[in-house]
Amino acid sequence: MAKVLVVTSGKGGVGKTTSTAALGAALAQRGEKVVVVDFDVGLRNLDLIMGAERRVVFDLINVAQGVAKLSQALIRDKRLESLWLLPASQTRDKDALTDEGVRNIIAELRTKFDWVICDSPAGIERGATLAMRYADEAIVVTNPEVSSVRDADRIIGMLDSKTVKAEKGEEIKKHVLITRYDTSRAARGEMLNIDDILEILAIPLLGIIPESQDVLKASNVGSPVTLNNAASTPAKAYIDAARRLGGETVPMVVPSEQRRGFMDRLLGRRAA
């Protein structure tokens, strides 16, 4: 049975696309057949993060409008053969996507894949509501920061009212993924900590992704962080999160910062 996930947040720049790519690759590395779908029509970026930007021929809108077949628009990852990308359109405006078009595409993807991961655009407009519309489960991405948590709360409200599952009176399963977490800053009381966020949002925790240079490095070279450096702390956190999505019980690790010497601290040098 295919599972349709939406990766959403409300706020922009919190790590939806990074997380979509990293979780998609982590699930595919486990042998699952995965497609990551970019719903950010007009501002696509998942292709770039996946390193497939020069291979886009047809896109989501072309398929939704019947211009291209789904098989023509799907791009197979060059590193993982069970990982696929369905890119968004760069030129069309976001109104080109219709509820019916999305419903048909999701229904077809369900027959071909184990996991369909929809990367939502920021905001609460049409693109974001269509990305979540047919999802079975939602991953709400948030940073430990007030505006991001507020928007996450708003998105949770929308998931509970605007998805097909919610309209049928069923519960849509929701997880929170905390990204850009800095354990030492949280410990010093400079940043909301995990318990604060979980108490406020009141949905289960999928994972804690540390603030890390490895995320930027991976995006620079167009490779999901779980593929680019699987031994790095953010990659390990994403791999654990992917295992939890698959139903495994994996102990939650609060990522710890690399140890810095006294002189480094004194001089304010950042650990690489």
Partner: peptide, 18 residues
């Protein structure tokens, strides 16, 4: 620490917005 302030502001705001 500023995080407790953030937490309290959020709790009040979200109670209202919900």
């Amino acid at each position: 620490a500023s995080a407790p302030v953030a937490r309290e502001r959020l709790q009040i705001l979200l109670a209202h917005e919900r």
